[in-house]
Design a binder for these strands. Structure first.
Lengths: 147, 147
DNA sequence: TATCATATAAGATTTATTCTTAACTGATAC
DNA sequence: GTATCAGTTAAGAATAAATCTTATATGATA
């Protein structure tokens, strides 16, 4: 398990540096996202939080996520689903997307991270980030298919 | 330049095999997509075709693309943009996405295609497809930034 | 303690996409 | 060739995700 406290400290620093107030909502949304591995949508986050913050509004979740993405604290993950999904994971990682259930699973692949890209990339542009996306069927779906 | 005729023959076979009529609209939409390298959205395709098919409706473009995706003739490409984008490219390839202009550029990387995935994948699921997505700034944007 | 950024509520707006219905077109089977 | 029926069109309605609006309330920080 990664050191979430450190990440939350970083989050607080960034907010302070940008003169953003540390509201319960922001803190809880970030906490939830950092601790979740399911890459939730705004709506999912809203539901995850409704017990802890009964007055939270979906609008605030959207607004807050947009702020976080702008600050680079959170990433929007592209998926085939209709709703945008988010993650607060900082370490370099890659995604396995289950075409059956829509689950998104992180994995690491250090040898890929260090490999050099093909020369042809130079004629295309400058790299900020390189990621692997695997599409397939997760083991859970695979097993439940066998009935 | 790839052999588009072969791809179009394949397209016709698949349509016939599924009892789908070879309408002008379907043919032109597929032609345009096969020959385009810009991964157009439904709306972009619609605009690309409005001269050739003045009576074409946007609805038909959406409907036709959905049919093609279902038949596996066309792929929906996930991008950070709000509109879905499509490609008819069959050969294994990867994507460079320009964060500045939203352009999506294909590239090939054979050594990646052949490399083995990390063992950890086995505990996740079965692979259908693996792709690299690079985010960065294309050379065109890079150059026009320097003013 | 005061100030002001933020959150909330309620509802309107925007945008992409899909659906509906009715009339028409044209591809394919015969 | 002609009939049939899938598919297209038009026009407009319906959905759904996301964003915005306005007025009021809250609560973090100086």
């Amino acid at each position: 398990m990664a050191d979430h406290n450190q990440q939350i400290a970083h989050f607080e620093n960034i907010c302070r540096a940008h003169g953003l107030k540390m509201t319960h909502q922001r803190l809880e949304i970030f906490h939830t996202l950092v601790r979740s591995s399911e890459h939730p949508s705004a709506e999912t986050l809203y539901k995850m939080l409704e017990k802890k913050l009964p007055t939270l509004s979906l609008d605030t979740v959207y607004r807050t996520l947009a702020t976080f993405v702008e600050l680079g604290l959170v990433k929007r993950v592209e998926t085939p689903g209709s709703q945008a999904r988010f993650e607060a994971k900082i370490e370099q990682h890659h995604h396995f997307f289950c075409d059956q259930c829509g689950q998104l699973i992180d994995f690491t692949w250090h040898s890929f991270d260090e490999v050099q890209l093909p020369d042809s990339i130079e004629s295309i542009g400058t790299i900020r980030d390189k990621n692997v996306v695997i599409h397939g069927v997760c083991n859970h779906c695979q097993n439940s298919d066998s009935d």
